[in-house]
Simulated scan of single mutants.
Amino acid sequence: MDGVTATGIRADARIVARADGRGGTVLPVLDGDGPLALRRTRSDGSEAKVMLVGAMSGPLGGDRFSLTASVAEGARLHIGSAAATLALPGQAKGEARYDVRLDVADGAELHWLPEQLISARGSDLYVTTRAELAAGARLVLREEQVLGRAGEDPGRLTSRLTVRVAGRAVLDQELSCGPGAPGGWDGPAVLAGHRAVGQLVVVRPEFMEHPVQAQALGECAALIPLAGPAALVSAVAADALRLRRLLDEALTMLR
């Protein structure tokens, strides 16, 4: 943990994955502590697996968290989390921030599949996820937000997701929900009364030659081709379980 100040906790984590030259992946850098503890788990084949373990509550008001993952050429990395992230109000005033930066080289693959982010009543969190991919990189990225715990009004949650391939933006979107968010976030054009919202981004070089076809996935999800070798699934649901089911079904279809 890098420090505790009057405005909250600052914590950083860093992961570097490289090919080992024998068909596997090594992790020369696996550095995180406090709220962002990192644990390597059993690997499958050439893929290295890392689990993000929340060692303490947070992010709370005023906290600043950041996580960076870099996947070098030929490496394969899977990052998950042991439990949902719970944004809570804290003694320190002000907005909390959680910034994620993902870098994937040519011929490398990253699966970023954390558990849900839950916005508890009274919290205020701004989360950014930025993925920078080389032209021949592969990515599976899942992002899920739940507005409030059971029977609870949500806090303020703003989420920005940016994906760039070969230096060109294929996705740059921001959603703000909860008290103080711009009007209409809970209206029919956005969440329509649902309390769970998620995105699934899949980047594969073969999508340049064979792009996915836009289609509705039931009443609460849609598959959208993006400019470049990428596809986006957006979904809303009544709760986290139904949202996960929608996104899992979409990922199975894209595979």
Rank of each mutant, 00 (worst) to 15 (best):
G8R: 03
D12L: 07
I15V: 15
D33I: 04
R40T: 03
A48R: 07
A48N: 11
V50R: 01
A55F: 05
D63K: 01
L67Q: 05
A69W: 00
A72C: 05
I79E: 06
S81V: 02
A82R: 02
T85L: 04
G90W: 05
Q91C: 02
G94C: 02
V100K: 01
R101V: 12
L102Y: 12
V104G: 08
A108E: 01
H111T: 15
W112Q: 03
L113V: 10
Q116F: 02
S119V: 12
R121F: 14
R121Q: 15
G122Y: 15
D124M: 07
V127W: 02
T128W: 08
T129W: 09
R130Y: 12
E132M: 14
A134P: 10
A134D: 14
R142W: 13
Q145K: 02
E152R: 01
D153Q: 12
L157C: 08
T158G: 15
T162I: 13
R164P: 00
Q173P: 07
Q173N: 06
E174W: 06
S176I: 07
C177D: 03
A181E: 06
W185P: 00
A189W: 11
V190A: 13
G193V: 10
G193S: 08
A196R: 06
A196K: 06
V202A: 11
V203D: 03
E209Q: 14
Q213P: 04
A216D: 05
G218E: 00
C220W: 13
A221C: 01
G228L: 00
A230G: 15
V233S: 01
S234W: 11
A235C: 01
A240Y: 04
L241H: 14
L241D: 15
L241I: 13
L246V: 02
A250G: 04
L254I: 04
L254V: 04
R255F: 02
